[in-house]
Design a protein around this nucleic acid. Structure first.
Lengths: 229, 229
DNA sequence: CAGCTGTGTGATACTCAGTACCGCTGTAAC
DNA sequence: GTTACAGCGGTACTGAGTATCACACAGCTG
């Protein structure tokens, strides 16, 4: 291929994606064959499967690459707790979708209406959750209930992320990144509140002899609070 | 079919399941075709697809029926909070697997090693999570952050259930039901502790004029505590 | 220029899951 | 008997995904 052609021509991969989205919109997903897509993109069937492993693959973003990026981010994380590290890492995923813009929304329309694609999406999400779970387990070591806690944390982070992502996809929010931050602090709060709250609810008891003035009581309370961890 | 034959003969459905499990164990899942299964079960290919929608369906329990049972349980639930109701309902799922016994474990061996089946399992789990989420949303109404909280709760319940279920499948525990109860109280504890701990940590401030005695301060505190929700 | 090599491409043929249809057979009802 | 019906098997088809092979077009080399 000569250079001037290269400038004018969109890559084969992109042509296939465009063709696929067009056809899915026109006739629906099941009514479109791989041959149709390849034909419209002006390439052979073989080329389609060389570019994308399956018919579903055309619509989905490159999860392999994105997961690798998330893994890297986790590996080089300097956060103080596992759940905060994961909350930071999941931001990458949201940003990727937001960057895609309209294409992400068109994909959402498809995954919402086609069972096969919805299932595929669910499986992709589970891969992130697994990655997070394993990271948290490694981070926490063989502590008491570590496995269950890791499970819950990763599930919470992923759910919160998906909640915000779906809101953005549905145009329910203009500030997905801000909402993600809020959702993530809600999630981390779930897991970082005083554990064992049933036995220690965080109350402080200050005992004084009779005859003190309320200002003295207040001072004693202030002192007690300062000593709290 | 005459009656004496009916007694001696296992149903076609069961024969197909047995044949499938045998063949998957012998040659692996991908190396087994639907024809192979039908042949070994002594029926035609057509009959296979009349009994099971797909090749994967043979191994999985009847999730449609089980989900319906769970939905019924939720609909007739008299629990005080949504998450407790869901925690109770998810027990049905665990019990179903435990009832299956060895068959569930053989299925687990397959879903652990065959990507297609693992994906299918993940999708099934998502269906329960969705059911729970919708129930919780209905229960909570349009409260502040209800959608996100419902998302987190359903994810937590399902994760905890799966954690315990997998422990039982791996023979890491002999008391799955007990562990499920423990895991579920851990989950409910997550969501029933003082919420909004970041903005309201549960502290009570009692203001008094100078000159009161500590016993009067204590009485005022007692009164304030009594007024707490 | 001729020859070599590697890479992307398209055509063909194949396997297998899943669907649609049709004809057979045994059973139950009238 | 015959009519109705339900379960079964066979055949043929569609379409996804795989494997193979031959070709075209680059770039490099002598």
């Amino acid at each position: 291929m000569r250079e001037d052609e290269q400038v004018a021509t969109i890559s084969v991969r992109d042509r296939l994606v465009d063709a696929a989205f067009e056809l899915f919109a026109e006739r629906g997903y099941e009514q479109t064959t791989v041959d149709d897509i390849a034909d419209r993109a002006g390439v052979g069937r073989t080329t389609f499967f060389r570019q994308y492993r399956s018919k579903e693959d055309v619509i989905f973003p490159d999860h392999d690459r994105l997961i690798a990026a998330v893994r890297d981010r986790l590996a080089t994380s300097t956060e103080s707790t596992a759940i905060v590290a994961v909350s930071e890492a999941v931001r990458l995923v949201l940003l990727r979708y937001v960057d895609e813009g309209e294409r992400a929304r068109r994909r959402y329309a498809l995954t919402s209406s086609v069972a096969t694609l919805r299932d595929r999406e669910i499986v992709s999400v589970a891969r992130y959750q697994r990655l997070f779970r394993e990271f948290i387990v490694d981070w926490m070591g063989p502590a008491r209930d570590a496995a269950l806690r890791a499970e819950l944390m990763s599930a919470a982070v992923v759910s919160a992320h998906n909640h915000v992502l779906r809101r953005w996809l549905r145009k329910d929010t203009d500030d997905p990144v801000g909402e993600l931050g809020a959702a993530m602090s809600q999630v981390t709060a779930l897991f970082t509140e005083d554990r064992d709250a049933s036995s220690d609810d965080g109350s402080i008891v200050v005992v004084l002899r009779d005859g003190r003035r309320p200002s003295q009581v207040a001072a004693a309370v202030r002192r007690a609070l300062a000593e709290q961890p």
